[in-house]
């Protein structure tokens, strides 16, 4: 049985999916790739926008999400973030 992901891991997975799509993605793709329910995805995207990790863009084809420099930095330093939070039990469940 796979381990339940904590908040930091889910944020990592969403940002990774966006980066893998050249930094820009439609919400349907996030939903498909991140393995989250629609309401959970909306909640996380709201949090990511608030934290400045992604920006929401309104395009002709509909809503898209773009990863920011801060979001890329999170992905690059994720190893350190995970190890540190793991050490002190700050998983953000």
């Amino acid at each position: 049985m796979s381990k339940k992901r904590n908040r930091l891991e889910i944020i990592h997975d969403i940002l990774k999916v966006i980066r893998e799509r050249n930094g820009k993605i439609k919400p349907t793709h996030i939903l498909y790739k991140s393995n989250l329910s629609h309401s959970m995805m909306e909640e996380y995207l709201g949090e990511l926008i608030k934290k400045g990790f992604v920006v929401e863009l309104q395009e002709k084809s509909g809503k898209t999400y773009e990863i920011t420099g801060k979001g890329n930095n999170y992905l690059d330093k994720y190893g350190m973030i995970r190890e540190f939070t793991e050490s002190f039990g700050l998983g953000g469940d």
């Binding site: 330093k77 540190f84 939070t85 700050l90 953000g92």
Partner: peptide, 18 residues
């Protein structure tokens, strides 16, 4: 110092509190 550094990266309130 590391807690604040990690907080700056991930914006998790728990890191700031730590």
């Amino acid at each position: 110092y590391y807690s604040f550094k990690v907080y700056k990266l991930c914006d998790q309130k728990e890191c700031w509190l730590l």
